[in-house]
Design a protein around this nucleic acid. Structure first.
Ligand SMILES: [Mn+2]
Ligand SMILES: [Mn+2]
Ligand SMILES: [Mn+2]
Ligand SMILES: [Mn+2]
Lengths: 216, 216
DNA sequence: TTATAAAGTTAGAGTATCCTAACATTAAAA
DNA sequence: TTTTAATGTTAGGATACTCTAACTTTATAA
């Protein structure tokens, strides 16, 4: 049984390695806000537990076991977010911090029940895929809105950053997943877009915003 | 902000002192399954935080602040149990261990939402009162079934011990809160009772069982 | 009222998680 | 290819929480 701390290291490493399965001590350190020496010794500990492959001065890599246990934490996080939004009435901008805590609860039936009540959802409220019980998840190959061209009409499918501030910004512009957006023009010099959707006819979105929106 | 560990000490002390507000180091030690020296130093720490009154060799006592923070943990525990039973479909024998973990989540809105969705319940699935946001709770003055007499008809209102085994035992006999029980006879030598309720006409309940059932 | 038992406390130590400072290795730049 | 910067590691220490062993105080029993 992994501790809360260990679960956080596994999750962070999983998120960094994003499928590929590699990250450096330095990256993990920055991701977690924990100093490198601390990360270094935790990696040795997780290597003892066969969750991480550790070799001095080489990149870190999750083992299959480590990848699976990380995926289960992410599964718990995303099921929780979905449950909070769909069954308890929270906004998608209110659930991350709560899920950060709930994800560490050790009670498989609790999350299986959420899954059942939700009807076995495939994605969370931010469009991120929910791993199945075997730790598998399929990342649909979405495009960044910033990679689309003027004239295209696309549907918002996911956000890559789900900070409160960004989600509240989207709320303030009536932007949510499923919204159909038409790209009216793209500014060359700053990458910003003018788009229309719903009742809004000429909304300006900065390049930064467009980079954090995934569409299909 | 109290740690998970501190919250468990406060809750245990609250439960022991049951309103009166006193318990010994020894009692608390046994309640928590933590050795006396450890309890002793934690009490000094909580005294520093003005949550406990500590004097060498004297009984421990929660301060008003300590009592209130303990009540909030118990509130979170019992709201969680109620939510798990009423909104997620768990049995009353399945929720305690989950609630032991969820009670430590620091997210007031999460529990306020539960409270709202539940319609501001006054008691949990085991008949225990749920403290309000100010930490106040009214213990209705129930009688123990074991203190009732032959011929009386009473309604089960609460259980004093909510171990899985006990609750599963009650389930197996179709006994739950709200069940109307008629006492047919009481055995003098072992305090056991013969009772009837629902479709059951002559069920024997040991003294131990009767002592853990509260009625009105 | 002593002697004994129970309860409470102090001292010293171990594990988990984190840190800073110093040193080592690797990667990047000159 | 040396020099420098970035990254990684080791050493030593801090805090939170836990323990056992030894000692003190209080309560109980002779
Ligand atoms: Mn999240
Ligand atoms: Mn999410
Ligand atoms: Mn409980
Ligand atoms: Mn309960």
């Amino acid at each position: 049984m992994n501790s809360l701390t260990e679960e956080n290291y596994l999750k962070a490493l999983f998120n960094l390695s994003g499928g590929k399965g590699e990250a450096t001590v330095n990256e993990l350190s920055r991701q977690l806000g924990i100093k490198m020496p601390t990360v270094n010794s935790m990696m040795k500990k997780l290597a003892e537990k066969k969750l991480v492959l550790y070799q001095s001065y080489k990149p870190l890599k999750l083992t299959d076991k480590g990848r699976k246990e990380a995926a289960m934490v992410i599964r718990k996080h995303r099921l929780t977010e979905m449950f909070l939004v769909e069954k308890m009435g929270f906004g998608w901008d209110e659930v991350h911090q709560i899920a950060e805590q709930v994800e560490h609860i050790h009670a498989p039936v609790f999350f299986e029940k959420m899954d059942l009540l939700l009807g076995f959802p495939k994605v969370d409220p931010h469009g991120s895929p929910i791993p199945d019980k075997n730790g598998k998840m399929d990342w649909v190959n979405y495009r960044k809105l910033s990679d689309c061209n003027a004239g295209e009409a696309v549907i918002l499918a996911a956000v890559t950053h789900s900070s409160d501030e960004f989600l509240k910004f989207l709320n303030s512009r009536d932007l949510g997943l499923g919204v159909k957006v038409k790209i009216k023009s793209v500014e060359i010099f700053d990458g910003s877009m003018i788009v229309s959707y719903g009742k809004r006819n000429a909304e300006a979105l900065s390049k930064m915003v467009c980079e954090n929106l995934l569409v299909h």
